[in-house]
């Protein structure tokens, strides 16, 4: 990592630390949702952007994480244990779902995960004895850290920010590890990767399971943020929303899902003045983006940069001009 990159990251972090002080309670709430959805989208980006598998079940993992955390903390289990349990459970379920599902791959994986997500919502709604049914669960406690309560919006924001940074660093380490490089090799050319000794199935499966546990953590944070969960908050539309975040930001780019989550979470704020038309405008913007830049916004940035380099050095091939 170059000095300049490091400086930028420090500056970014400083902004994230200072920003909430300028915001109203609602503003802080929006920032928290952005960070929470970013964690979920980062996980999906690992599955989709790096391992190349379309999953439509990210919301169900958020749901499993949220209900695990809610039920455990409300039963008196300390929050760190509950949150770790949520992540581990999602990891295991990710393995169990992924093992048979990854046999079929591509669009069939999307169909299976779509069905899985719908099934999870049905179970959450119908098993009232455990989940509170369609009414959901209210009054989920927020964590207490070194005697500090995070009941106040600002305190909770910093709790979320800390976990966000931790998860981002962990993801960076995963992608940079030899094992993470195998993901990339896999996405670019599965057959070559296989011949180089990459166990496709095992690698993809692990990527899917890790991505799922990111979803689980995001879910447990969401439960604490809103202090209420119900089955509908984890339906298929939410999975599609997280997918949209990854695609809009740029799948396969480290900062893609974070940027995507920012835009999707903030979209209603900026389009609110259009009143009843806002969902229509939002839909049109997504269609236009897909038509003109299917690789997402960061893909657009990269394309512009490649074009610029090509102009500066017309002899370079596209490949050399790229990263």
């Amino acid at each position: 990592m170059s000095k300049r990159t490091l400086a930028t990251l420090v500056a970014g972090l400083a902004i994230l630390i200072l920003l909430p002080f300028t915001q109203s309670n609602y503003g802080v709430f929006v920032l928290c949702s952005w960070l929470v959805y970013s964690i979920s989208a980062m996980g999906l980006n690992l599955t989709l952007g790096y391992a190349g598998q379309v999953s439509l079940a990210q919301a169900s993992f958020m749901g499993i994480g949220a209900y695990t955390t809610a039920l455990m903390t409300m039963a008196g289990v300390p929050w760190p244990a509950a949150m770790i349990a949520a992540m581990v459970l999602c990891f295991v379920i990710g393995l169990l779902l992924g093992y048979p599902a990854l046999r079929v791959q591509h669009h069939f994986l999307a169909f299976i995960t779509l069905a899985f997500n719908a099934l999870v919502v049905l179970v959450l709604r119908n098993e009232e004895w455990l989940t509170g049914g369609t009414y959901g669960i209210v009054g989920i406690p927020r964590p207490e850290l070194f005697g500090l309560q995070t009941q106040k919006p600002l305190a909770f924001y910093f709790f979320v920010l800390a976990l966000f940074v931790l998860m981002a660093v962990a993801l960076y380490a995963i992608i940079r590890s030899p094992w993470g490089r195998a993901f990339k090799a896999l996405r670019e050319n599965p057959i070559r990767a296989n011949s180089l000794g990459v166990d496709i199935r095992k690698t993809t499966l692990l990527a899917f399971a890790i991505g799922s546990s990111y979803g689980g953590l995001a879910g447990s944070l969401l439960a604490q943020l809103t202090q209420f969960i119900d089955p509908h908050s984890f339906g298929l539309t939410i999975s599609l929303k997280v997918l949209l975040m990854v695609i809009v930001g740029g799948a396969g780019f480290f900062f893609g899902p974070i940027l995507g989550a920012l835009l999707i979470v903030l979209a209603p704020e900026f389009l609110r003045f259009t009143e009843g038309y806002y969902l229509m405008i939002y839909a049109v913007l997504v269609i236009v983006l897909m038509i003109f830049c299917p690789t997402g916004l960061l893909g657009l940035v990269e394309r512009a940069r490649t074009a610029l380099k090509l102009r500066q050095n017309p002899n370079a091939t596209t490949w050399e001009a790229g990263r």
Binding site: L279, V286, I287
Partner: peptide, 18 residues
């Protein structure tokens, strides 16, 4: 490929509904 079409048709569905 398939994925951008999936996203765009989901958005189209929202557009028609709204």
């Amino acid at each position: 490929g398939v994925l951008p079409i999936v996203i765009a048709t989901i958005a189209l569905g929202i557009l028609m509904k709204e």
